[in-house]
């Protein structure tokens, strides 16, 4: 396969995984105004549940179905007892609190599963390679390239076509107005946070066959997720899609074209976009 084509596929598959990991972050920020440092750790928990379900029942799909739900329940507890008391407080306190939650989850995972690296195999149907563009490419990566947009479209349909989705967007725009017309904001917030955690964990389960499962997963991904949502426009989930795509492709082509700047490139991109378009590519300008 031509290396340009290969890198497009590399960039797309990584970008889509990045999208699944970070889209929850942007939804939570958009509706609740909270930048959740523990988001990466919720993602990591998804991977560990994938590992655990494979160990228990030998099925990746059961992990995909149940893992994110368990993480969402955990998120409900976190929101209800830890985050709710500080909604009215300063953003920095919310950052500090979610940072604390991140430390607890990261170390908790180590207490339960140990600090060794683990490997989760993709399900039979998604393993191996597929012939594509006069070459071969891993089936699992092709699956990621397809799954990303599917989830994106499903989210878009949910937000624009269902009553729930519309209510959410209304609450994101003006919380007080939404409360006046009868939306129960606290319940809504709990559900949004749980939803953000659910989709982060979904990303975690899907990432498990792609990379080794270990206690550092969340820490590695959180800054990259921040960059994705910021360059796309915070609170905008089409923005997260675009941001993830850009970062994924940049990662793929940067390795060949600008190897010396690889480590700094996401930050350079971030600075350029924030200086040129303060609210991100698809964020609403003030």
């Amino acid at each position: 396969m031509d290396s340009v084509v290969a890198n497009i596929l590399n960039g797309l598959s990584w970008g889509m995984l990045l999208f699944l990991i970070s889209v929850g972050l942007t939804v939570v920020f958009g509706v609740m105004g909270i930048l959740n440092f523990a988001h990466g750790s919720l993602f990591m928990l998804g991977s560990y549940f994938a590992l655990q379900f494979v160990r228990w029942v030998g099925s990746f799909w059961i992990g995909l179905l149940l893992g994110p739900v368990i993480v969402a329940f955990l998120a409900i507890l976190i929101e209800r007892f830890l985050i709710r008391p500080i909604y009215s407080r300063d953003t920095s306190l919310q950052l500090l609190l979610t940072f604390g939650v991140m430390l607890i989850l990261d170390d908790g995972v180590r207490l339960i599963w140990g600090s060794a690296y683990h490997v989760v195999n993709p399900p039979q149907i998604l393993s191996g390679t597929i012939a594509i563009f006069s070459g071969t490419y891993p089936v699992y990566r092709v699956f990621l390239v397809i799954a990303g947009p599917l989830v994106g479209v499903a989210l878009w349909a949910f937000f624009t076509m269902t009553r729930w989705g519309k209510t959410l967007r209304a609450a994101a725009m003006d919380r007080r107005m939404a409360e006046i017309i009868g939306v129960r904001a606290p319940l809504l917030f709990t559900l949004v946070f749980a939803f953000g955690a659910w989709i982060a964990a979904l990303g975690g389960v899907l990432a498990a066959p792609h990379q080794s499962v270990g206690p550092a997963m969340g820490e590695h991904i959180i800054i990259e997720s921040f960059i994705v949502v910021v360059i796309g426009g915070m609170g905008s989930f089409p923005g997260a899609f675009v941001g993830a795509l850009i970062l994924g492709l940049m990662n793929a082509f940067g390795a060949t074209m600008l190897p010396d700047l690889q480590m700094a490139m996401p930050y350079i991109l971030l600075a350029i976009i924030l200086l040129a378009r303060p609210r991100g590519i698809l964020g609403e300008e003030l």
Binding site: L82, P85, I86, R89, L93, L96, L97, F99, G100, V101, M102, L103, I104, L105, D106, D107, G108, R110, L111
Partner: peptide, 19 residues
């Protein structure tokens, strides 16, 4: 050696009790 979990708990408590 699990200092991270303790630090995390203390942070959470501090934010909630000493905002």
């Amino acid at each position: 050696t699990n200092w991270m979990i303790f630090l995390g708990i203390i942070l959470v408590l501090l934010v909630l009790l000493f905002p």
